[in-house]
Design a protein around this nucleic acid. Structure first.
Lengths: 339, 339
DNA sequence: TTGAAAGCGCTAACAG
DNA sequence: CTGTTAGCGCTTTCAA
C-alpha cells in the first residue's frame, strides 16, 4: 500500500497534475476547471486515498500547518488542560501542535525556538513562565505570528490572552473579607512577573479599599522553581510569624503547598485558617469541606488564543481585538469559619 | 535577517553544495573531504547561523524528526506528566513530539493517524485508552515504528512499556489485608481493557490467596468516559449496597470519584473506609491524613518508551527487550483505621 | 578529493 | 479551460 501522490491521481483520472492540484485545493473557480473533471478528480482522489505530503507542501509554500506551543512545563494542571483545548481548537483549523518546554532539562528557549523554526511552524503560542521576552522580540521582528497566553510584554505589543488576574484575586480577597476575616495574607511568587504583579495589586488594592491595615510582611513572596519542601517550609514559617487569619494564594501550586504547610503546623482549613486560591484544582474541590478558588476559564482562553493566532497567521480575517482579558470565576466553597 | 540555506554557506565558503551537506551531516569521512575545507565549512555555517530546513530534508529523506504521541486526553495527570518526560527524552535524540488526542471533540483516531502520517512522523507512541487496535495493526503492517504505553495488544506483538498492573493492585490489596480489612472491594472500569483486566486479576488473585470469601458483587464495574456525576452515584450506590470495609481503586480518577462518593454518603477515609488507589495523585498525598497509592514510575516509563521507539526507528541499536514491564511502588499513607 | 545534477511531491506562473 | 514547467532546499549518486 504505497503512498499515493498527486501524479498518480492525475494519470488515473486522465488529467494534468495541475488540474488535480487546483481542484484539491479548492481553486477550481479561479482556474475554471470543468465541473465534470473536478468531480472526477475528487472521486479518484478519494478512492485512492490521496493525502498531500506535508513536507512537500511545506517546502513549496513555506507553511507547515503546525503551530508551536511553548510552555515552561506541560505537567502543571493549568497547562496540561489548556494544552488539550489548544490541540482541539487548532485541529478545527487543520493545524497540529508541536510543543516544547523550556524548563527541566529540556533545551533552552533559544534552542527550542530554533528547532520550531526549522520545522517551519506557522505561528507560536507562548505561555511564558520563563523570561523569554527578548526571544519573543526577535520572533516578532521576523514577522512571526505570536500570541501570548497568561502574560504580556508591555513594550512589545504582542497579542495576548489572559485572565483578569487583578479582578480574580480581588474577588477572592473580598470574599474572605465578607466572611469576616480581617488579617488576610497573600502568598505569591516572583513578584516581577506581570501576572503575579497584577495579582499582588488585586490583593493590596482590595485590602486598602476595605480599610484593613495590613503590615507589609503579610505578603509572602516565594521564588518560582523553588523546591517543594523549601516552599512548604517558607509558607509555614510565614504563617507562624505573621499569624494571618486567612490566606489568599496567588497560584494553584502555592495553594497546594500552603495546605501542606498548614497540615505540618497542625492547622486545618477552615478551622484555623480561611483560604482562597487563584486557579482551581481537583484537590480544592475534594479537600473537605472544599476550598474556594478562582476558576480560570480554560476553554475560553484556549479558544481565543487559537482564534487570535489564526488571525495573525492570515487564516481567518483578523479581528479587531488582538488582545483580550478574560474574567475568572469565583467558585465558592467552604474554606471559611462559620460564625 | 533571511533564512540562510545550504547554498549560501557553499558560496560563502567557496565550495560546492554537496561538500557542505556532507560535512554538516558528519559524512566527511566517507567522502574524504579535506580537514581544512571541513573546518572552514563548519565555521561559516556557525557564523551564518545555518540550520537545515526540515521540510526539505523531510521531503528528500522521508524522515521528519518528529514522533507522534497519541493519547486519549492529555489533560489527565498521568498523561500530562508522562507527556512532559516524553518530550524531554525525545529531545535528547533530536526529536520533537507532535500530539493528538482521540477523545473529546477531536478528530477520530483514523483521521488523527492520517494527519500524523501526512506530517511524515517517524514513529508513534500510543497510549491507547481508546480502542484502536485495528488502526495500530495497519500502522504495523506499513512498517511504522510503534510503541505502546500502558497497554498492549496480545495479538499484534507491538513493543510496549507498561507498569505491572497486576502486582500494583496486588500490593495494594495486600496492604489493606495487613491493616486488618477483610471485606475489600474493588472499583474498576471497562474490564475488557488489558490493563484493567490485569488489575482485576491482581485483586481477585490476592483476595483468593488470602482466603477471603468475597461475594461477586464486591467488584464495582464502571464505564470509561461515564459522566462524572454518574460515576460518583454509581460508586455511592455500590458502597451502600455492598458495604465493603475497604476499597481498592483501579485508576486515579476512580479514586477521586470514590472520595467524592464517600463524602456524599457522609463517610470519610479512614474512619469509615480503608482505601488504596492505583496511580498516585497530589490529592492522595494532601487529603488528610493521606491516602495510600501505587505510584507509577512516570519517568522510567517515558524514558523506556522513547528508548524502545528509537530502537524501532533505527536511531539507536535495537535492544533485546522490546517490551518491558515496570513495577509500581506502593506509597504508604494513612488511609486505614488504626487498631 | 571535489562538483554537477537528479530528483523528493507539490504549487502556481505561464503558455497554449 | 488545461497542460508544462520551474523551482522550494536538501541528499546522494556519479562523473571528473
Amino acid at each position: 500500500m504505497r503512498k499515493v501522490k498527486i501524479s498518480d491521481i492525475a494519470s488515473k483520472a486522465g488529467v494534468s497534475i495541475s488540474a488535480v492540484s487546483f481542484v484539491l485545493n479548492g481553486k477550481e473557480k479561479e482556474m475554471r476547471i470543468s465541473k465534470s473533471v473536478a468531480r472526477k478528480i475528487r472521486q479518484v482522489a478519494k478512492k485512492e486515498g490521496y493525502h498531500p505530503n506535508r513536507a512537500a507542501v511545506s517546502l513549496r509554500t513555506g507553511e507547515s500547518k503546525i503551530i508551536g506551543l511553548i510552555v515552561d512545563t506541560i505537567s502543571g494542571s493549568f497547562f496540561s488542560r489548556l494544552a488539550n483545548v489548544i490541540e482541539t481548537e487548532a485541529g478545527k483549523y487543520g493545524y497540529k501542535v508541536i510543543y516544547g518546554s523550556t524548563a527541566n532539562g529540556s533545551e533552552g528557549s533559544e534552542q527550542l525556538l530554533r528547532i520550531l523554526s526549522q520545522h517551519n511552524v506557522d505561528g507560536y503560542l507562548v505561555m511564558p513562565e520563563a523570561r523569554i521576552e527578548s526571544q519573543i522580540a526577535s520572533l516578532i521582528k521576523r514577522k512571526n505570528p505570536v500570541v501570548l497566553i497568561d502574560s504580556y510584554f508591555a513594550k512589545l505589543g504582542v497579542p495576548y490572552v489572559m485572565v483578569d488576574n487583578f479582578q480574580g484575586v480581588a474577588d477572592g480577597v473580598s470574599w474572605l473579607y465578607e466572611k469576616g476575616y480581617r488579617r488576610i495574607g497573600f502568598v505569591g511568587s516572583d513578584l516581577d512577573m506581570v501576572q503575579m504583579k497584577d495579582r499582588v495589586r488585586g490583593y493590596s488594592d482590595t485590602v486598602k479599599a476595605k480599610k484593613l491595615k495590613i503590615p507589609k510582611g503579610l505578603i509572602c513572596e516565594t521564588v518560582y522553581g523553588m523546591e517543594n519542601t523549601m516552599l512548604i517550609r517558607k509558607i509555614a514559617d510565614y504563617v507562624k510569624k505573621m499569624r494571618p487569619d486567612a490566606l489568599m494564594f496567588g497560584a494553584n501550586y502555592l495553594g497546594v503547598a500552603g495546605l501542606e504547610a498548614l497540615t505540618g503546623l497542625g492547622m486545618s482549613v477552615p478551622a484555623d485558617m480561611g483560604m482562597v486560591c487563584f486557579d482551581d484544582m481537583d484537590i480544592f474541590r475534594l479537600y473537605p469541606p472544599g476550598i474556594t478558588a478562582v476558576e480560570q476559564p480554560i476553554h475560553e482562553i484556549g479558544h481565543k488564543a487559537v482564534e487570535i493566532l489564526m488571525g495573525e497567521m492570515g487564516v481567518i480575517p483578523v479581528s479587531v481585538k488582538k488582545s483580550i482579558m478574560i474574567k475568572g470565576h469565583l467558585v465558592e466553597r467552604n474554606s471559611f469559619r462559620v460564625g
